[in-house]
């Protein structure tokens, strides 16, 4: 935890420096007749972020925050595995949207999570993984008139059938 806290503070400080540099693309000073320039507000806020990172590092050095005096690892092997499986699953879910459509990605994600992480039966998994995307389709496309991403062209026959039901 101790090493993690200072590493995170360092990363955030670097990001603050990047934001300060990026803010200077617009004027950061006072322009007569126009007031502060467009970069003024984000620049000084980024300075605030950088100073906060400095204070976090100072507290870390003095051992004033709980993480700075903790010898425990950030997460144990189980924690890393859980975060990797669940967080990775969410990343995979979003990545799949452009390929198999939003509804297809929902179904695949539910099968992955419930069957492979949750160890539920195929019957329960498939029931939820099929009914939920269909329910979402009628809710968003039918009731709310919001079109979700339809993925690559191979999904089109599915959408043709579903739109025939709605319209």
């Amino acid at each position: 935890m101790r090493q993690g806290e200072i590493s995170l503070a360092g990363l955030l400080a670097l990001f603050s420096l990047y934001l300060m540099w990026k803010s200077t693309e617009l004027p950061i000073g006072f322009i007569r007749g126009q007031g502060p320039g467009g970069g003024f507000w984000p620049f000084w806020l980024s300075v605030g972020m950088l100073l906060s990172c400095g204070a976090i590092a100072w507290n870390w050095w003095r051992g004033k925050s709980p993480a700075s005096v903790s010898d425990e690892p950030l997460m144990d092997a189980f924690g890393w595995r859980t975060v990797l499986h669940v967080g990775g699953g969410v990343v995979g879910f979003v990545a799949l949207i452009s390929i198999v459509s939003m509804y297809g990605a929902v179904a695949v994600f539910l099968v992955y999570y419930m069957r492979f992480l949750g160890r539920h039966s195929w019957l329960l998994t498939l029931t939820i993984a099929l009914l939920l995307p269909i329910g979402l389709f009628f809710f968003f496309e039918g009731a709310m008139q919001i079109s979700m991403p339809q993925g690559l062209p191979f999904t089109q026959p599915f959408f043709d059938v579903m739109y025939d039901i709605i319209y």
């Binding site: 669940v86 699953g89 969410v90 879910f93 979003v94 949207i97 939003m102 929902v106 994600f109 539910l110 999570y113 419930m114 992480l117 949750g118 160890r119 539920h120 939820i128 939920l132 979402l136 968003f140 979700m148």
Partner: peptide, 14 residues
């Protein structure tokens, strides 16, 4: 929770 959690993720993304 292994049913509840994926439902919440799906709701968030959709």
């Amino acid at each position: 929770f292994t049913i509840l959690a994926p439902l919440i993720f799906v709701l968030s993304i959709v």
